[in-house]
Every structure is written in structure tokens, then in C-alpha cells.
Amino acid sequence: METSRIPYLGPITAGFPKASEGYEDCPIDLQALLVPQPAATFFFRVVGDDLRADGVPAGAVLVVDRSCRPRRGRLAVVEQDGAFLATRLGDTPRPDAVVGVVTASIVQMGRG
């Protein structure tokens, strides 16, 4: 005769509810702060130290939002002579040359 084992699923436990019941929230999400518009946001790595005074040292990661309007004086990534440049926009930025406006610069300090 064939036999089969029936699994014993274990006892059910119950106890006091957590005191924080109903007060849970999600941990802080950096993405929500830095990337409000994910479909239009791209990251770029910075080469060169020219913009250190603007909070953009070499190696920084720029958050570039293509949905923002490029205005005079904004830091932006533009296309020029076959390369991407991070620079302040002048009076009349060529609209087709502007990739997007820089909305944040991420600088890591290291963990050592």
C-alpha cells in the first residue's frame, strides 16, 4: 500500500500587538528628495574641478532633470563639440544644446 506523509504546519502563535501599531512609516527615501521626476532625470559623473566653488568637485554625481526649464544662470549640462559640459547657462542658451538643468550635486565624503 502506498503511504504519504501529511505535513504538520506547526503551531499558531499569537501575542500582544506592537505598541507602534498604526504609526508605521517608510524610512526616508533619498530618491524622493533628489529625483521627483524619475522619467526625466539622468545622472552624470563630473570630470574636472572647474566648478568646485559651485559645489561640484571632480567625481561628483550630477542629478540632471530634463523636465526643468533652462533659465539664465542655472547650472546645466549642455552638449558642445561632441561632449557633455556642466556649466552655467548664459543669456541665450541654445535650446537644442541644453540636455537638462542640474538640480543636485551628490558629493561622497568617503567612509574611512
Binding site: F42, F43, F44, R45, V46, V47, G48, D49, D50, L51, R52, A53, V56, A58, V61, L62, V77, A83, F84, L85, A86, T87, R88, G90
Partner: peptide
């Protein structure tokens, strides 16, 4: 993979105005 890997981001050159 410019948009999915931290070590493969596009690069841009810093240029002061």
C-alpha cells in the same frame, strides 16, 4: 548602461563660465 549602473554613468566636463 548609462541609466542603470553607477559605474557606467555618462561623463560631463566641468566648465566655469
Amino acid at each position: 548602461c548609462y541609466t542603470t549602473r553607477w559605474d557606467e554613468l555618462p561623463i560631463c566636463y566641468a566648465k566655469s563660465a
